[in-house]
């Protein structure tokens, strides 16, 4: 019953959205090439699908996303697990982290393109940066917030490094780390598109630039919607993975 109501909510919400769009389309006096109707966007979507470009661009984007995001998580969690246990070291690293963190990853873009040229690398690097700081900081915080009784028990049972990190600290900190990883997914996906708009000749971000260059607002809007839908799917996937791990580790789900 609840599932049914959720589905109903989604359907109603989408219908209202499309209706508003249609009304805006009818009432506004933009050129229809610049502000297409929902139906035109749908046609454009079908066009990109049948031509095969959409599928290729999605795969390209997902490939870059996965590499950048996974690499970022692995490095950030590993570093966070170490730094979280070395507060003396972290206090020297933290100021630099705090300095870099508020800089939008897009600000790095020109620099990254200068260094690595156009292609996969800039998009991957920007995703890496986008996901890195939230995951690093949430891992450090998570490690520091571990219930001290787990550490006392580990000490008592003579669990030393590196087992201490794998057996106790990582699983104990995991719920909080997971929420950092989850949050980072959203921003990483956002910046993938930004990265591909500047630093690539393929992918969904590039498809937007390409549509703009050809003054194809219909394709542009269709691409935007595809990006949103993939974002939702990725979010759903990570939720499932997160829950699986928590369940395997005895968390109350």
């Amino acid at each position: 019953m609840r599932k049914l109501r959720e589905v109903k909510n989604v359907v109603v919400s989408l219908i209202v959205f499309v209706l508003l769009w249609q009304i805006l389309f009818i009432t506004s006096d933009f050129n229809e090439n610049l502000f297409p109707s929902p139906y035109m966007a749908l046609q454009a979507l079908v066009e990109t699908v049948t031509k095969g470009v959409l599928f290729t661009n999605i795969l390209t984007s997902l490939y870059r996303f996965l590499i950048g995001y996974l690499a970022s998580i692995i490095v950030a969690v590993a570093l966070g697990l170490v730094l979280g246990q070395l507060p003396g070291v972290f206090q020297y690293i933290n100021p630099v982290v705090q300095l870099i963190r508020p800089i939008s990853p897009t600000a790095w873009m020109p620099f990254i393109v200068l260094l690595f040229g156009i292609g996969d690398v800039p998009a991957i690097v920007i995703i890496f940066i986008a996901a890195f700081f939230p995951v690093l900081l949430s891992t450090v915080t998570a490690v520091r917030n571990i219930n001290p009784v787990y550490l006392k028990v580990s000490q008592n049972f003579a669990i030393s490094q590196p087992e201490l990190t794998w057996k106790v600290i990582l699983p104990a900190a995991f719920p909080q780390i997971a929420s950092g990883i989850h949050l980072a997914l959203g921003s990483a996906w956002i910046f993938l598109v930004a990265g591909e708009m500047v630093g690539a000749q393929s992918g969904l971000g590039y498809q937007i630039i390409d549509a703009r260059n050809n003054i194809r607002a219909d394709i542009l809007l269709a691409t935007i919607i595809v990006i949103g839908v993939i974002g939702i799917i990725l979010d759903g996937l990570i939720k499932v993975i997160e829950r699986r791990i928590l369940a395997a580790w005895g968390g109350q789900v």
């Binding site: 009784v149 006392k152 699983p171 104990a172 995991f174 005895g250």
Partner: peptide
């Protein structure tokens, strides 16, 4: 010499 803690100190993921 093992200590048994008041809040049990079990590892909830095991």
């Amino acid at each position: 010499n093992i200590t048994i803690f008041q809040n049990y100190g079990l590892l909830p993921w095991r």
